[in-house]
Nucleic acid binder design. Structure first.
Length: 589
DNA sequence: GCCGTTTTCGGCCCGACTGTTTTCAGTCG
């Protein structure tokens, strides 16, 4: 079973518990939801945890859920779950993906209309709504009937609870809205928060916090946004709108002197906030977006915090960078004043994976900007060095000799530019395909023309984990191969990427002094953050690259840095924070 | 069901908004 399937099953268990007896099973519901979230966000197969007997090392999975999962994997079913699902109609489950549908609403509808078929339940309900039969149910009315119909039709057009967008698109939507909000004089500050601020690879809803003493005016302005499709909610201090493409934007307002606690609250993550608030409760503090209530002191007003730093300090914590706020150990470290000093954008001294438009006749895409243009941009970015890593010349269209000649010519051109350009140093590199056999696409003689190679997989993604690991290690074993580019091959919202045996990869990288790339390309963001974290723990070195194909893309390293921070990478974990001489020595080692 | 720097028992975040209600349940983040 896939992680996704297991996550869905656990979510269904939570929903079934909630229908069975909301009060009695309150904590089971929470526990199963948390376990489902954990599994849904794993970057390696749940089967690997099962095989190594480490299932209960995962947050939210204890002895009980672990044994249920083991039973599931061994026998294909779980006795306890069968009991939980008893009397719960299967037709409720497809409804749970639809925004505004929870277990209660789904059950009420399915039960009342005796809907049996999970495959048709959505169209069944739609039909009942159109016939006007939902409005007469107890606790339902005309408004909820039309809300249901709209939710169903938006769902059919792709607006589900789990649909997510890639980072730059989310930034674009958020930036436009922030710009619009700031047109209102009553808006002191407006900032995008949530998963966008934490640098999560894909974004669900966009969250925006506003500092203002006039919340009514702000909400009015926000809900009048000209590019909105509709207003979802509109209250005194918060509101939600939907913009084109079914994207939801949530906004919340607090007075400027309480902006710190709002930033903290709205940045999340949910798990981080829950942990923080539980911790605070033990000290008799109650935290919220409004500030801190001191529970021992009766009738005291809520204390407000203008900055997040003050807010964290009041609870006795070091300031925690947004990228770390996932409740994966950062709160414990902050308590002990032992948070790592994370890598920053300004630490980067170069980019080793860029594609110029030099006519190298590759089988994959060529860049669109010239070597000179890219060097100019590198200078603007304060880089000391830049590596050109166009794709290798097409193997099917050229002989080895022709490839050598193409690379020789390129080498001469680069040497020429080097002599005219002293401000940014150049590395002569190449992105070389690792063929299915594990061989590199070009031979040793051609490789000898390079300072080093970035190697990567661009074909036959469907190999199993062991074979793919062997393939990648074979490719990395060439002495010129120094960096494994976009190591998992994932394309966000397109394909999941292949599985590698990370322990073996890490071991190899350390032994032979190779580096893993953190690819900043927004549809890749590869390595995934959880694997960066493991690499950091294993003391494997990494390089943050952009994979730019034109000048304007070279600033994308900011996404790579956020990703690295999510993996708790320090400056010392990232090799392209080294000076030219030190990096050059490593590259040629 | 999970979890532990006051706990292996006894806790478990906090508040916003909506529709159907006249005080609250459901959903969301």
């Amino acid at each position: 079973m896939s992680n996704e399937q297991i996550a869905v099953l656990l979510r269904n268990v939570a929903a079934a518990y909630s229908i069975k007896d909301d009060k009695k099973f309150r904590f089971q519901v929470l526990a199963y939801q948390k376990a489902a979230d954990t599994i849904a966000h794993l970057n390696s197969e749940i089967m690997d945890y099962y095989k190594s007997g480490t299932l209960d090392s995962l947050p939210g999975i204890g002895t009980s859920i672990r044994s249920h999962l083991e039973e599931l994997i061994k026998t294909g079913k779980v006795k306890r779950f069968e009991w939980v699902f008893e009397g719960i109609p299967g037709a409720i489950f497809p409804l749970l993906d639809i925004p505004s549908f929870g277990p209660k609403k789904a059950y009420a509808l399915v039960k009342h209309f005796k809907l049996k078929n999970p495959k048709t339940v959505i169209t069944d309900i739609e039909k009942l709504g159109i016939e006007g039969k939902i409005a007469s149910l107890p606790k339902f009315g005309e408004k909820s009937q039309s809300d249901i119909l709209r939710a169903l039709s938006e769902f059919k057009e792709g607006k589900g609870k789990t649909t997510r967008m890639v980072l730059p698109y989310a930034h674009e939507v958020a930036d436009k809205l922030v710009y619009y909000l700031k047109e209102l004089p009553e808006v002191d500050k407006a900032e995008p928060l949530g998963s966008l601020r934490r640098g999560v690879a894909t974004i669900g809803d966009i969250d925006i916090a506003v500092a203002s003493n006039k919340p009514k005016e702000v909400i009015e302005h926000f809900t009048s946004y000209p590019y909105k499709e509709r207003v979802i909610e509109k209250g005194d201090i918060s509101a939600s709108i939907m913009v084109s493409g079914g994207r939801q934007i949530d906004l919340m307002v607090q007075p400027p002197d309480a902006f710190g606690s709002l930033l903290q609250h709205f940045t999340g993550s949910k798990n981080h906030n829950v942990h923080l608030r539980e911790l605070a409760l033990k000290k008799n503090f109650s935290l919220s977006e409004r500030g801190i209530k001191f529970l021992k002191e009766k009738n005291q007003p809520i204390k407000r915090y203008e900055t997040e730093e003050e807010f964290y300090a009041e609870i006795g914590l070091q300031y925690i960078e947004p990228e770390m706020r996932e409740d994966t150990g950062e709160i414990e470290l902050a308590l002990a004043n032992k948070l790592p000093d994370l890598v920053e954008l300004k630490d980067l001294k170069g980019d080793l994976h860029t594609h110029s438009n030099y006519p190298i006749e590759p089988s994959h895409d060529l860049g669109l900007s010239s070597v000179e243009e890219m060097l100019n941009e590198a200078k603007k970015l304060n880089y000391e060095y830049l590596g050109f890593s166009e794709h290798n010349p097409s193997v099917s269209k050229h002989t080895n000799r022709e490839i050598y000649e193409i690379l020789e010519k390129r080498s001469e051109k680069i040497e020429q530019i080097k002599s005219n350009n002293k401000s940014v140093r150049i590395f002569k590199m190449l992105e070389v395909d690792i063929l299915p056999s594990g061989k590199l696409a070009i031979d040793e003689k051609s490789l000898s023309l390079l300072d080093a190679a970035v190697v990567s997989v661009h074909s036959v993604f469907s190999m199993d984990k062991n074979k793919m690991t062997q393939r990648v290690l074979a490719g990395l074993s060439y002495s010129k191969a120094k960096i494994l580019a976009h190591p998992t091959g994932r394309l966000l919202n397109v394909r999941p990427g292949y599985d590698l045996d990370w322990d073996k990869i890490f071991e190899f990288c350390k032994k032979f002094d190779k580096a893993l790339e953190i690819n900043s390309w927004p549809n890749r963001l590869d390595l995934p953050d959880t694997i960066i974290r493991k690499a950091v723990e294993s003391k494997v070195k990494m390089v943050i690259n952009t994979d730019s194909h034109r000048v304007s893309q070279m600033i994308m390293s900011k996404y790579g840095v956020m990703l690295a921070k999510r993996g708790w990478a320090k400056k010392s974990d990232i090799l392209n924070t080294l000076s030219y001489n030190d990096f050059s020595n490593w590259l040629k080692s």
